[in-house]
Computed example of a mutant assay.
Amino acid sequence: METTFTPVASLGGGVLIGLSAVMLMLLRGRIMGATGILAGALRPASRYDWTWRALLLAGMLAGPWIFFAFTGGLPTIDVPISTTMMIIGGFIVGIGVTLGSGCTSGHGVCGMARLSPRSFVATATFMLTTGLTVYVVRHFLGA
């Protein structure tokens, strides 16, 4: 399996994620954890709470179309696994997000920036588990 490394696009994406996290904290006093934002949009505390969450989620969904506007093509996505495996993986990630009280954006970007010990442990767990999973899938399962 070949991995394509795109340092400029990766740096640009990282800068945009970091900037959006800082702006949300400065403007709304909120942490940008994607799963928490989605959960709050599904069960908002108020109309105001729903509005900023819905706008942020709409911005996330608009990303590929903004990319299209600038480049004339949509990003290429190569998914080397079946839809069934993606659904199973999504459920497993959902369980991890629930048990870990957050996701990579909440813990890895925002929590570590706030020097949260819980976020350092969660992020280390995400990274170790990811590395181990990739190793097992590539070397033992032959994918």
Rank of each mutant, 00 (worst) to 15 (best):
A124Y: 06
R114E: 13
S101F: 12
S119E: 07
A124F: 13
G106T: 06
G102F: 06
T76K: 14
M25P: 00
L42W: 05
T84R: 05
P75T: 11
V97L: 09
Y48H: 14
A9V: 11
G72P: 04
A58K: 01
I88E: 02
V136E: 00
D78C: 07
S101D: 15
R53T: 08
R118W: 12
S82K: 02
S10V: 14
P80T: 02
A58D: 01
D49G: 10
A54D: 01
P64N: 11
L16Y: 13
P117T: 14
F140Q: 04
L61A: 13
C110G: 12
I77C: 06
I92P: 04
M25N: 13
Y48P: 04
V136D: 01
A62C: 10
L141K: 00
L57P: 02
G72Y: 00
M127S: 14
T133L: 11
T129K: 06
I81P: 02
V8N: 12
V93S: 05
G94I: 03
G142Q: 01
T133K: 03
G100A: 11
G13E: 12
L56Y: 11
L128P: 04
I88S: 04
V22C: 04
M60I: 12
G102Q: 07
A34T: 04
R138M: 04
R138D: 08
G131F: 02
L42H: 02
P64F: 02
V15P: 10
A39C: 00
G59Q: 04
L132E: 00
Y135E: 03
V137F: 09
R114T: 13
L42F: 08
F91A: 09
W52V: 10
I87G: 10
A62Q: 08
L11F: 15
P80N: 08
G89V: 00
T130A: 15
W52D: 09
W52F: 14
L141V: 06
L26S: 15
S116E: 15
T98G: 01
A39V: 00
M32N: 03
V134R: 00
I87V: 15
A113L: 15
T51W: 08
T123C: 08
S82F: 03
T98D: 03
A45Y: 03
I92G: 07
M1G: 07
M32R: 01
G29L: 07
L55V: 14
R43D: 05
H107S: 13
G142I: 05
M127W: 12
V136H: 00
A39H: 04
P117S: 14
R53N: 07
L61M: 11
L55T: 09
F68Q: 07
G29S: 11
V136T: 06
S46T: 14
G108L: 10
G142N: 02
A113V: 13
L61E: 00
T35Q: 02
M60W: 12
H107K: 07
I95R: 01
G102M: 07
A45C: 01
V79S: 00
